[in-house]
Design a protein around this nucleic acid. Structure first.
Lengths: 208, 208
DNA sequence: TTACCGTGTGACCATCTAGTCACATGATAC
DNA sequence: GTATCATGTGACTAGATGGTCACACGGTAA
């Protein structure tokens, strides 16, 4: 957590520091980011920075916490409204809210993707640590319920399918950025079709 | 390419340098690897290193070329023998030969995965560059043939499915390492089942 | 005026990096 | 013996990094 001095400075400056830090991590990832560059962009001194934050990790954790907080607002709203509508609907909505978050918070989403992909790094272990299987376990439970309801084949490899869904969610945002890199962004249409395609594929396969 | 001096030194020393470099890149990835550490582990001087290689990138490219060469031996054998057996068989065998390569060349596979995942980095663009869509285009063609043959739904998003298959292949090796990290390795059985599961899922979906 | 205190500063430190270069060694050729 | 040449060396450079610290500034309280 940042030191209390960080929360004492005026909001404009605070937001500016947050923004510059988000920019830095989104472009360079944690390992290759530079405090020197951040303070330079912020036009504050090195000494000031270390009066706001314990160290580089402290800043990164703070930015991640901002990101998680924001993303939760998207996902929680979905979960609450869809919790009784079964696996397909829930997963679909998680995918969609994930994409919506990525679309509306490109930089934060990029930081998240970089962190999740770099899952051998020290910072990944420090931040994600024991929670790394939380999402996967959640999908596992959903799938098991669906198997009991007779909606999903009972002989699938639940562990593996959960893992796959998890990496699909990470990949989906990336793919979306990829196809939209040079085009103008057509969030609402393209994106939702993509999720529908993906879910249809997951449930029914691509074979005839 | 390494300088000719590298190929003049005796094979034992050359293999040792290759091995230590592979180790370094597999553990630290390109960006975080250190020439200092490599020469220290090799017990050769910095000067010698720069008489063998132009620079760090030269060494990395060389190691990647070794890896590609080796992997091609696995995949090519598959492609030649399965080319007439249709999409499912080919993809299945590509998955399997990819896993076999990863199992038998853990370090090289790890270097490849790290490079492919870090697809924003300068080194990725330098090395993969314009070829980054080669694999995806290959899958696209396979799928289009299969659609014409009436084996795959004609209304799927071919571009997206190809992208997905590509990232599945990258993720599959990773998942395999993951589940085998603490267990003893049961390559032949578990691995092949995993591929069969995955392909069955891709073709038929998980829904009942 | 003096004392205190939160905030701001940038030179500085230790430590790392990739890459260089003047020199040493040792083998072969004449 | 001497000249040539490939190979080997490690101190050194220039530039980065994260983090520290003695000090400066400005406002408030006694």
């Amino acid at each position: 957590m940042p030191k209390k001095t960080f929360f004492n400075i005026n909001e404009e400056k605070r937001k500016m520091i947050e923004e510059k830090a988000i920019n830095e991590f989104a472009v360079y990832s944690y390992e290759n980011s530079s405090i020197n560059r951040i303070v330079e962009n912020c036009k504050i001194s090195k000494g000031s920075f270390y009066q706001y934050f314990e160290n580089k990790e402290d800043l990164f954790r703070y930015i991640i916490s901002l990101s998680v907080e924001k993303k939760m607002k998207y996902v929680n709203a979905t979960l609450i409204s869809e919790i009784d509508n079964g696996f397909i609907k829930i997963i679909k909505e998680i995918f969609k809210s994930g994409l919506k978050f990525a679309y509306e918070n490109e930089k934060l989403a990029s930081i998240g993707v970089l962190l999740m992909k770099n899952n051998n790094s020290e910072i990944y272990h420090k931040i994600i640590g024991q929670n790394k299987n939380m999402a996967i376990d959640f999908y596992k439970k959903l799938i098991e319920i669906e198997i009991e309801k007779g909606e999903i084949k009972p002989d699938i490899n639940v562990e593996f399918v959960s893992y796959l869904i998890n990496s699909m969610i990470i990949n989906l945002s990336e793919y979306f950025f990829e196809i939209n890199k040079n085009n103008e962004k057509k969030y609402s249409e393209e994106m939702l079709f993509l999720v529908d395609d993906l879910m249809d594929m997951l449930i029914n396969g691509i074979g005839l």
